[in-house]
């Protein structure tokens, strides 16, 4: 198991390196002159001479490979440049907004698991009966519902009509409820279908038949033989849900004025604040990749075939 984890961590290094190169290259496609943006930020009138000096200062006269190397060395020291708008270090800004986003995404993931597992079990146990039909309808609604619309509907119902929940901002649990439900609605719907399909597949499997033949109790069969196998796709899908939640958080934060990094990044898009955008996408991708690593390790833990396949080599 230890070797498996180590090997997986080592494969992250080239992935993250390539990701940073790709992001750097995409940034070169951007319209507009970075030197011009830099001058605007520093309130220097953009004369020809000032532009030329800024280009040298920013290293824009050097070949792209050298520029990347410079950027990389700085990034190793956690220096990702300064925001074109606020002039403050980008990393500092992002770290300021990140905890709120992680709280939202984490709560969303928890809610997804807490709701979709019982729902999925319910659907599978009541196959082709009312609970199953209800769950099926629910999951179709869930995957078709635009999350920004759902958020607004919730605000209309619970803030405008009933006045139960605050429509925006961050504070107590009441502030958290609507954003988290909005964020996890689609993931719950997808997970219910996943788990239902998994459970039904394993109920019919030979290992379950054999367990029954050996006289294993029904409770043990359900929870150990069926559930454990059916959880595998659910666990692997968690990493993907997280990606969806990081993206969804951008929208949800905008609806509920949640002070997270997604709302900050949308402003950066409008302001063409490239250093902020660059740091934002790198940060989100690192979080995404790390969480998928955790999921893979968890996966190997549940399913011995995975880690054994690695160790045989």
């Amino acid at each position: 198991m230890g070797r498996y984890i180590l090997r997986r961590i080592l494969t992250l290094i080239p992935i993250l390196f390539v990701v940073s190169v790709v992001v750097f290259l995409i940034l070169r496609m951007a319209k507009g002159d970075p030197a011009m943006a830099y001058l605007r930020m520093s309130n220097i009138p953009p004369t020809e001479q000032a532009l030329a000096e800024a280009r040298i200062e920013l290293g824009l006269d050097k070949p792209v490979a050298v520029q990347y190397a410079d950027w990389f060395m700085k990034a190793l020291r956690l220096d990702f440049g300064r925001s074109y708008v606020t002039g403050r270090p980008v990393l500092e800004e992002i770290m300021h907004y990140l905890p709120a986003t992680l709280a939202l995404a984490g709560a969303g993931l928890l809610l997804t698991m807490a709701v979709s597992v019982p729902f999925g079990v319910l659907a599978a146990m009541g196959k082709d009966r009312l609970p199953d039909h209800l769950m099926r309808a629910f999951s179709f609604v869930g995957v078709s519902m635009p999350n920004f619309w759902l958020g607004l509907l919730l605000v209309y119902l619970f803030s405008v009509k009933l006045g139960w929940l605050p429509p925006m901002g961050r504070g107590g649990a009441g502030h958290m409820l609507m954003p988290v439900v909005t964020l996890s609605f689609m993931s719950i719907a997808i997970n219910v279908r996943f788990l239902r399909a998994g459970l039904l597949e394993h109920i019919r499997s030979r290992s379950v038949l054999f367990a029954r033949a050996r006289g294993v109790s029904e409770g043990r069969i359900t929870w150990i033989h069926v559930m454990r196998n059916a959880m595998i796709p659910v666990v692997t899908s968690m990493g993907m849900h997280l990606g969806e939640m990081l993206g969804g958080a951008v929208i949800v934060e905008n609806i509920f004025s949640w002070p997270g990094v997604g709302r900050f990044a949308v402003q950066a898009v409008f302001n063409r604040d490239y250093p902020t955008l660059q740091c934002f996408i790198l940060m989100m991708t690192v979080i995404f990749v790390l969480c998928n690593l955790c999921v893979d390790i968890l996966y190997a833990f549940i399913d011995p075939r995975i880690r054994l396949a690695g160790e045989q080599r």
Binding site: I15, V18, V19, L242, G243, E244, L246, G247, G248, V250, F280, I281, M284, T285, F288, V289
Partner: peptide, 8 residues
């Protein structure tokens, strides 16, 4: 596929 879709 390494990047989260909507963020990219």
């Amino acid at each position: 596929l390494t990047f989260p879709t909507l963020i990219l």
